[in-house]
Computed example of a mutant assay.
Amino acid sequence: MLRNKFKPYPTIDDILEACEDSLEYAPSLDTLEKDIRNMKQADVLDAPIEYCRKNKGYWYTNPNYSINSIPLTEEDITTIKEALDLIKNIGGKRVNERFSEAIQKILATYSEEFPDGNSQRKIIQTDYVEGAKGYENFNKLYEACKNQNPISFAHYSYNSREFKAIIVHPILLKEFENRWYLIGYSETHNSIRTFGLDRIYEPVLLKRKYIESNSNEVESYCNDIYGVYPLENQPKQTIRFLTSIKITNYFEAYPIHATQKGEKNESGSSFFTIEVVPSIELIRLFRSYGRNLEVIHPNWLREQTKTLL
């Protein structure tokens, strides 16, 4: 209303009436006056709003001002530069070509706007390796998740060395240890399953009704786990393990799950507990530490790893 040249200098009553027409509730005059004062504050919108006594209404002293084009501070620009450097070093190709092209456009603009940037100096390095499989289908799988579109594809099993036709009602795409996975309800397995993108071939969108999974089940399947492949018939449970002095600090600095809690011993070793659904990746992680990690509970998981103690 402040930028409307055909009806300039709106009064507080004009603004109130407009709010009543467009909002589900009507703010009070006191609320509107406080909002205008807040908009004028430098740390909010720094809006050049003034009351014109002659025209008995509000106006912008700078006619080109708009809350949709708030100027950036030097700190804002520095932060954006750092974020763009991070994007540039991570790279879009680790997701798919479409995202990569979008990032390249942003970076091209970045180079024009900030030519003083030191583009030759690489200060972030990731473990992404060129040539990884599966990213060619990322866009189609992403759209299927977003639009809740059932999808069919040929899935290759590394264990049985054979292809199998799968129909999935996709839920989300998840990255773990620099690998991408599709999580969705599988008609073939009649349950929520995980499929590595590197084993998905020829995905095809299907014209059939989408089967929506229970939200609590999805939440548990995606978050109550370390990794992506939960062990069958294993519920969420408390897992307790002991770490040696050598690796305790690593677990304290980088918790393996949001539920992780630690009890440090005087010797420097520590007992940790996590509340998760056991997974293939969790067993692999525990085994990788050899004698420096001992599973205390549950007993079945201790049996899986005690040969390394």
Rank of each mutant, 00 (worst) to 15 (best):
I67S: 08
Y221T: 12
R161G: 09
K209H: 09
K140R: 09
R121T: 07
W180I: 03
K261N: 01
H169D: 14
R199C: 13
S279H: 05
R208F: 00
G57F: 03
Q304A: 11
Y201W: 02
Y185S: 04
S22I: 09
I166L: 10
E294K: 15
F99G: 02
F163I: 07
Y156M: 10
E275L: 01
I67T: 13
H257R: 03
T73M: 03
R3G: 14
K122R: 13
V95G: 00
I70P: 05
N299T: 13
D76N: 15
R287S: 11
Y289L: 12
A47S: 08
K93D: 15
V204H: 08
G227H: 02
H155G: 13
E74A: 14
S22H: 11
Y201A: 03
P27Y: 06
K261Q: 07
A26R: 15
P115E: 06
R53Q: 13
N64V: 02
T248N: 04
L182G: 02
F153R: 03
L231Y: 06
L86Y: 09
F241A: 03
D224E: 07
T126F: 13
K56F: 06
I90F: 11
A102K: 14
E82C: 06
E263L: 13
Y201S: 10
V168T: 14
Y254S: 14
L282N: 01
V218C: 11
K306Y: 14
D21G: 05
R179W: 00
D198V: 09
A18F: 08
S186L: 08
K140Y: 00
E177T: 08
L293V: 05
Y250P: 00
Y51H: 06
E177S: 13
T273V: 08
E275S: 01
